[in-house]
């Protein structure tokens, strides 16, 4: 459905993305994951037809984005990172306008608007002025705008950014539902989002692809080691020795003291071993006070670091 081959894009001397190649099959939900400035938005704008690539070829729904820009755009629904709509229009008149811009006329435009509102659950606000809607609803209007015209490909740039947790959950359900019949590419810089919605992940870092993998494989690759934060009310050296000799622990690192008497450590564990419960009871058995014990997730930056190092190493 989407074929990107050797695509680069630069603005003046700034290189936004370099030599990207990937393919997305029909019906897949693929996540573009990367920190800010990784080139996600640039790649998505190229797919949506906002501007052409500097080098390389991009095919969407069988059309070349450079040679056949209007047909490509007709096949793509785009939700921009900066959610935008004409604030002075009502939801339904705005979506009718969008349908007309996408080539539908009269009653066809009307039914497009109605079905897009239905799919996004915004029928209740159909006659409200967009400027008066809450952030969550505006985001849904943005998705409805992308859905109008029944495009076979949806490009969603950070669809959950700026929403509260409940709205984020709703949005993810919505996207999963949309992905049942369409090809979806969504970008995010939040790892759990990819895990909960996508079949496959493309990880971008500084304009290049760092990894392409299924979500399951990726989780395994990056979570092969666990990380636990422990704070113990005990002499530092004794505690360190106890922790480092514990079965399943690969390394221990002291943290600067945060409280009056407690010693804190970052403990790395071996792959696929959850030692938290055993570790906690052993500390208590020694007669020490267990102040805190929790697992520490890897930040996206750390994941990129390990993945880039993997790549350089292999």
């Amino acid at each position: 459905m989407i074929a990107v081959d050797g695509v680069s894009k630069s603005f003046g001397s700034f290189v936004a993305i370099e030599d990207l190649s990937f393919e997305v099959a029909a019906g897949e939900i693929v996540g573009l994951l990367g920190p800010n400035g990784a080139g996600k938005t640039t790649m998505m704008r190229i797919l949506a037809g906002v501007f052409p690539p500097s080098r390389g070829t991009v095919h969407v729904a069988g059309y070349d984005v450079v040679k056949d820009p209007l047909r490509t755009r007709a096949a793509v629904g785009y939700f921009p990172e900066r959610v935008s709509a004409y604030l002075d229009m009502t939801v339904s008149s705005y979506l009718r306008y969008v349908a007309k811009m996408k080539g539908f006329s009269g009653s066809a435009a009307n039914s497009q608007a109605v079905s897009a509102m239905g799919a996004c659950g915004i029928e209740a606000v159909a006659n409200r002025i967009i400027g008066s809607l809450s952030k969550g609803f505006r985001q849904r209007v943005g998705i409805a705008q992308a859905l109008t015209g029944e495009p076979s490909v949806l490009i969603l740039d950070e669809p959950t950014s700026g929403l509260d947790p409940e709205q984020v959950a709703d949005m993810r359900d919505l996207i999963r539902g949309l992905g049942e019949k369409r090809t979806v590419i969504l970008s995010t810089h939040i790892l759990p989002e990819v895990e909960s919605t996508c079949d496959r992940v493309i990880i971008l870092h500084r304009g290049r692809i760092v990894a392409v993998d299924t979500t399951g494989n990726l989780s395994r690759r990056i979570q092969r080691a666990g990380r636990i934060f422990v704070e113990i009310d005990a002499p530092v050296e004794d505690a360190r020795q106890h922790l480092s000799q514990f079965a399943g622990v690969s390394s221990v690192e002291s943290k600067p003291r945060s409280g009056d008497s407690a010693a804190s450590f970052i403990v790395m564990t071996e792959q696929d071993r959850d030692v938290r419960a055993a570790l906690a009871s052993s500390i208590v058995q020694r007669g020490w006070g267990l102040v805190e014990l929790r697992s520490v997730a890897f930040s996206l930056e750390e994941i990129f670091l390990t993945l880039t190092q993997d790549q350089e190493g292999s």
Partner: peptide, 9 residues
């Protein structure tokens, strides 16, 4: 909204 216009046919 100009960006959206650029994604319509």
């Amino acid at each position: 909204t100009i960006e959206l216009l650029w994604t319509y046919p």
